[in-house]
Amino acid sequence: MKTPVPIVGLLGRALVMCGLALALVGCSGHYPADPDGTLDRVSGGSLRVGVSHQPPWTDTAGDNSAEDPGGIEAQLIEDYAQTINAEVEWHAGGEEQLIKLLSERELDVVIGGLTDKSPWSSDVGLTTGYAESIAVDGKIAKHVMAVQMGENAFMTSLERYLLDLDIEQQVPEEMRP
């Protein structure tokens, strides 16, 4: 009879060692980390935000403008930027154009009432849902923001800020689930 192979063979052991080594590397600096260092760049610098008009989440009309947009999400971004000493650099435009710029890494965040059902999830990273509302189809949608793919330190930093807030209160009464 054949002797059974050891539970964790040479390959398995090599993998575990790699994992441990990486976990140690990860402890210095951010974990999860940004491959392109977005969080370090925007902290104390400028945060390039794409905004597409979608009230009440984003508003570039009326009293507001493309240079100084209003809406729930625009305010959230302004507040978040303050926590990392960043200056927000607004870029108003259509959603597809902005997503394209974000996937080309010309922007850091895109907002505009995006939800977790967004078809853009294969081009950009979507944050975890930070608020819920009733969408046009009557179903409950989780609201998210779009960030660059794989910039996980920046993404989790933004998510942590958003999750700590009670944003449901700011959603208009008729849209609350």
Partner: peptide, 25 residues
């Protein structure tokens, strides 16, 4: 189980900023 282990190691690598690690493993 090799794939499972590789997935875990790959994700930890991605967390360390090595975006290619998941695929490489």
């Amino acid at each position: 189980w090799l794939t499972g282990l590789a997935t875990a190691v790959g994700i930890i690598g991605v967390g360390a900023g090595l975006w290619w690690f998941d695929a490489a493993v």
